[in-house]
Design a protein around this nucleic acid. Structure first.
Lengths: 156, 156
DNA sequence: CAGTATCCCAAGCGATACTG
DNA sequence: CAGTATCGCTTGGGATACTG
């Protein structure tokens, strides 16, 4: 017998009520994920991003503007030694919260796709110990197997 | 002092060695994530997916073919009561492994984007208890704060 | 270096019609 | 129901040139 406060919906789960579906529209772009990746590991200067990704200036400019508009990215003045003021982009809290998603996707890509070795891995800032992402029970924090994960809509 | 087996790379982390970058190219499509989402919660019949997403037949057909080609999706005969044989699509192990990413993105979307209420949540198949995704140390499984997550390349 | 402006062109979306 | 085939048209990518 199942918990009555939740009902599993085998089909037709509303797109509007699903953060995944809404977010999908957000990231379904040729460049956005790549740009956010650069920002995530600290490449924030316009020219550096452009060079790294080989992306046309106009496109990068437009994407950064859109990301700022959506609240994922902020622009900040950047004071270099002796040289004039530059500006650089960085993730907001909202953008930084995508780190979990990034990490999960990184793991998936490393595992299932053709990736050059040695692969990029996620590590702890200070200890440098490798990290991973896990699905857990929200309260007990006990690990849950992937095959046991379902989507559901909470009933009032 | 940092662990010498890891070196943090503040910039220019190779795109080819990064599962995230490779996977990004994979998912950077207007429809793919939405289609995978349908499959993930069990909507596998062509017409059901098409109706739910309002996607043109030709586009859905092409996307499913590409996903099968890449190993994320399989097609299987589907035996209904009294009616003739149908076929339906479902995720392979590789496709199913994206569940962690889906869940992380679901959480992010629910938290930061405009999502209708009540929102879709991830729950345990049997207990119906809500789940979440966490970043942990790979060995000790201790939680790690987002601000402490970095990318790095393991040195030989 | 950090953009904006312009323009050409290919990709691919989506409508419609057709097949098993 | 489950696709394939065709096709017009828009979107947006990317090259080039220009500005602060």
């Amino acid at each position: 017998m199942s918990n009555p406060t939740f009902r599993q919906t085998p089909r037709a789960i509303s797109l509007e009520a699903c953060g995944l579906a809404v977010a999908a529209e957000f990231l379904s772009d040729r460049w956005v994920l790549l740009i956010l990746r650069e920002l995530f590991y600290g490449v924030g200067r316009f020219e550096d991003i452009r060079t790294e990704l080989q992306i046309p200036k106009s496109v990068l400019s437009a994407r950064l503007a859109a990301l700022m508009d959506k609240g994922l990215v902020e622009k900040q003045p950047y004071k270099a030694e002796g040289s004039r003021t530059r500006s650089s982009y960085h993730l907001t809290k909202m953008g930084g919260d995508l780190a979990v998603t990034f990490l999960a996707l990184l793991e998936w890509g490393n595992k299932h796709l053709e990736v050059a070795t040695p692969p990029v891995e996620a590590v702890d800032k200070t200890s440098r110990r490798p990290l991973r992402v896990m699905v857990v029970d929200r309260e007990t924090q006990k690990p849950v197997a992937l095959r046991d994960v379902r989507f559901a809509v909470k009933q009032d």
